[in-house]
């Protein structure tokens, strides 16, 4: 009341730059995507309105369910293992010794090199004729597996690509979370008689909740939408074993030149993302111990 000048307009003025960016880079492309998804767009030429036909076509496609399941299983496996690896690294490297600083840098390397380069590197490593797999196989005196030509191995290779690259991201996020826990609390718990497990379970884990949630959401969205891994590493194969929704969007849009269907599929993937995040939030709310996050 004392400050009569502060009107809602002032609030909007401060929000404006963020809103402009949001509209320009999120809502406008989304709206355009929605518009294209209900039109026939072939060879980059906008055609007639055709209602939900694009959606019907892609959803009824023989490979849609496969791509959906591939995306789900890849996301879940990569998410779980990347998060676990990142968390382990964060806990292990949450010290400032010279060794752990060096190791943090090493772990960060895959994250800072370009995704494309990283996936090409792994493709080379996994390939039988040029890579490191045969070297390892020779070491154990077994025939080297054809990693990228075997459906299960190829999925494992793609998950490995995810872990290799993105554990560093999880580690950085969780390390920041760990660093924000006052050391006094840990000391207090130690004096209170708590062992390492109890400190982790009762102090560190609850206080890391925000960092954990953000990390999980960021990783999940990344894995559900990532194109580089399947495109570069596996090409979606073999036998469509790594044919994710994102890869299909790319193929339909830029190899079949059907942007209408590609956009319809992108909208479906967007809804899938939203559903996944809502699910994750619900799981978190359920397990929350009465504290405000």
């Amino acid at each position: 009341m004392m400050d009569g000048q502060r009107t809602p307009f002032q609030a909007y003025r401060y929000l404006l730059p963020a809103l402009v960016l949001e509209v320009g880079f999120v809502f406008a492309p989304l709206a355009l995507s929605l518009y294209y998804s209900v039109h026939r767009v072939r060879y980059y030429q906008l055609g007639d309105f055709n209602g939900l036909q694009n959606y019907i076509d892609i959803l009824s496609h023989r490979l849609f369910l496969n791509s959906f399941l591939v995306t789900c299983s890849f996301s879940l496996m990569a998410l779980t293992l990347t998060f676990a690896t990142g968390f382990g690294l964060a806990l292990f490297l949450n010290r400032d010794t010279a060794g752990s600083i060096l190791l943090r840098t090493v772990v960060l390397l895959p994250y800072v090199i370009a995704m494309l380069v990283g996936s090409m590197l792994l493709k080379w490593i996994f390939s039988t004729d040029a890579g490191l797999v045969p070297l390892a196989a020779a070491w154990f005196d077994v025939a080297s597996p054809t990693v990228l030509a075997d459906p299960e191995y190829a999925m494992a290779a793609m998950v490995a690509n995810g872990i290799w690259r993105d554990s560093a991201f999880a580690m950085v996020m969780l390390l920041a979370g760990l660093r924000s826990i006052p050391p006094n609390l840990i000391q207090a718990a130690r004096i209170d008689g708590a062992g390492s497990y109890m400190i982790f379970r009762r102090i560190i884990l609850p206080l890391l909740r925000p960092a954990i949630l953000i990390t999980l959401i960021r990783l999940l969205l990344h894995f559900a939408n990532v194109l580089t891994f399947p495109l570069i590493l596996t090409g979606g194969g073999p036998n469509n074993a790594t044919d994710t929704l994102a890869l299909r969007i790319f193929r339909i849009g830029f190899e079949d030149f059907d942007l209408g269907k590609a956009n319809a599929m992108a909208i479906v993937l967007c809804l899938f993302n939203i559903a996944a995040v809502v699910l994750l939030l619900a799981v978190f709310r359920k397990t929350r111990g009465g504290q405000s996050l």
Binding site: P182, L185, A188, D192, G289, Q291
Partner: peptide, 14 residues
């Protein structure tokens, strides 16, 4: 022993 810290070190989530 038991200890009381300068900033009390109460567990904020409990």
């Amino acid at each position: 022993i038991a200890m009381v810290f300068q900033n009390y070190a109460l567990y904020p989530h409990m």
